[in-house]
Design a binder for these strands. Structure first.
Lengths: 350, 350
DNA sequence: AATAGTATTGCAAATGTTTTCATAAAATCA
DNA sequence: TGATTTTATGAAAACATTTGCAATACTATT
């Protein structure tokens, strides 16, 4: 009963119903202070009655902001990205923006395509996860002069503003925690580092930190595992097949660390008595495994929230000032790390 | 060097550069077969040179589709929703649509607000998770005459088309699996069922299935836990404090089941020898815990994918035909369920 | 009461496209 | 070769809004 002329409810329909001009209706929305309170009331009643909903597309055409922000992630499906997306979404929502989300599955060409797609929708800004992007993507962003942001990683050298954490530091902190507990024989499980700046920053920092204590990690103490609990579990089983096994495992991320933990359960190793495990990330769920996973917390939620706030500020500001935020890391000690066993490297496992 | 008149690259700029009219440029995009290949080439060159990107906002204003689909979820942050979102996103992307994502944190009023927001952006359709929505939301959708879809749950009685699984059946299947293994003394851990149709459907089906074998579940074998591994763990610890403890635990979802599993590890109970555990959902990660979690698989990925496909078909079709899909459930038997111990209910735990 | 100032409103142009209609050029047919 | 169809293009209207400018009505000031 509300809108008779089905679908024909535009600003002029409202104007007609309220017996004013379209301009006045428009003003009621955009500059309410410029219109007489009485008229405003009339108009609002008409809006209610007709069920009018503003058309952002038409506004956008007018040079007004579209009110959307694009976010391009490698995948929505990883706990850690889901957390960032959630926080980012909430944060920009507070500023009145909507989220256009796209994922590229770790394919930089697809990332380019996604950014283009978002640009067609005239997003007011585009946020990208990570520091690695195709040349074309960067050029596109620059050429279109659209506000852009790198989220999740932090690096001073980045061409774009970024809000994230320093993965180099994360690696160092993890290594130092194990060193402080007396571990010298440390196994490393990392994802493939090519095309993954996070992993490579972490790994190089770990090796550096160990090196500064004159510890080198022999090849048979290093193994690779993808971002998958079950595959990490298998990789860990292989690694722990050696006698003596290392006294600690440093994992490139929490998913791998979880896989490692499950592997030790299968082997009936006691954690942390027989073996310490540390991860990086502090994913949702890391606190819940038994025992709780010691890890370097990368504050996903803070990053997402902060990124959203700063970015919307930047976009809505008249004289935008550049920004970049490096979020603090923290070593969260839970149950999977402990002092070195008495006889380092002693074998007690079946 | 590309766009001199910074930001002024519209269709007429391209037209000018290619020495044709704007109409022809538009046609090259929308009806390429209507324009001479030679002209097309000229135009494409101009597009390249100027870095022109189509303006969907302007198209939208023209009654063309906006090319966006809105998805409103309770939260992005749960493994299971992340999986659906990913699949849905990929699926609609293939059909050329972009995803406008919003979350409401289980607040139906916020859900309404989000749908409104999406409508302002003139999405071509809106997909909602679950079957429970405010009266206002339903009215809004109906009044605006926008294609809508319920995703994740399936129910014949739904007012809107839906793509999802039948939670009643899921509950029954879980109960029947335990019954088939000989369990008669079963503990139940479920989330609060008010305002959660999924949980309540599952629970009532479980009680029904048990009832049909003349098994009633006494109150001290029922407990409540929220969607949180650690809180479920605690709830399980409380439940298992009783002697004798039940021979099996049926959990309302996999997150709870994981918490339960961690609890048994803490209690040094052997699973499944001392206690069987079954979940519902088959979340990402359920396969990876040690031992692998037996559960009723709700095919999140399939649901998301199918929903995306059907919905975009529906939207782009000239004569849309109604649709609803009930996705198949499957009992995935892994390591956490086994035959009843010899003496049912015997206590062997510390 | 005349003047100046302010508050409120409407008109019309502008935004970037798509599409209908008309026209011109080229190709086909007898 | 003239008539007819087909192909290719452009002009202009339409889409739903915003906003600069102008006009009107009201209020305050002298």
């Amino acid at each position: 009963m509300a809108n008779f002329q089905k679908g024909k409810v535009d600003i002029v329909a409202v104007a007609k119903a309220a017996k004013v001009s379209a301009s006045t209706v428009s003003r009621t929305f955009n500059h309410p202070d410029l219109v007489n309170p009485a008229t405003r009331k009339k108009i609002n009643r008409a809006v209610q009655k007709l069920g009018y909903i503003r058309n952002r597309a038409a506004q956008t055409m007018h040079g007004k902001r579209s009110g959307t922000i694009g976010l391009v992630v490698p995948t929505i499906n990883h706990a850690i990205f889901a957390e960032v997306i959630q926080a980012f979404s909430d944060s920009i929502d507070k500023a009145g923006f909507s989220l256009l989300l796209a994922s590229h599955g770790y394919n930089l060409d697809r990332e380019y395509a996604m950014v283009r797609k978002l640009l067609e929708h005239r997003v007011d800004g585009v946020a990208l996860v990570g520091l690695e992007h195709s040349e074309a993507t960067i050029r596109l962003i620059e050429q279109q002069g659209i506000p852009a942001l790198e989220i999740w990683n932090y690096a001073e050298t980045s061409e774009l503003p970024c809000v994230g954490a320093d993965n180099h530091q994360a690696g160092r902190m993890a290594a130092e925690h194990l060193l402080a507990l007396g571990h010298r024989d440390i196994g490393l499980i990392f994802p493939d580092t090519i095309g993954n700046d996070r992993a490579s920053h972490r790994l190089s920092a770990v090796l550096e930190a160990l090196g500064s204590r004159n510890i080198t990690v022999p090849d048979h103490r290093k193994t690779e595992a993808p971002y998958s609990v079950s595959q990490a579990k298998q990789a860990t089983l292989d690694l722990l097949d050696q006698r003596p096994h290392p006294t600690a495992l440093l994992c490139g991320n929490d998913v791998i660390a979880q896989g490692a933990l499950f592997a030790t359960q299968k082997l009936r190793l006691r954690v942390p008595d027989d073996l310490s495990i540390i991860g990086i990330g502090d994913f949702k769920g890391s606190v819940d495994v038994e025992p709780g996973l010691t890890t370097i917390r990368i504050p996903a939620e803070t990053i997402g929230k902060l990124a959203g706030e700063r970015f919307t500020d930047y976009i809505t500001s008249d004289e935008p000032t550049n920004f970049s935020v490096c979020c603090e890391l923290k070593c969260i000690v839970r149950g999977t790390t402990g002092k070195t066993p008495m006889q380092p490297g002693a074998l007690r496992n079946t």
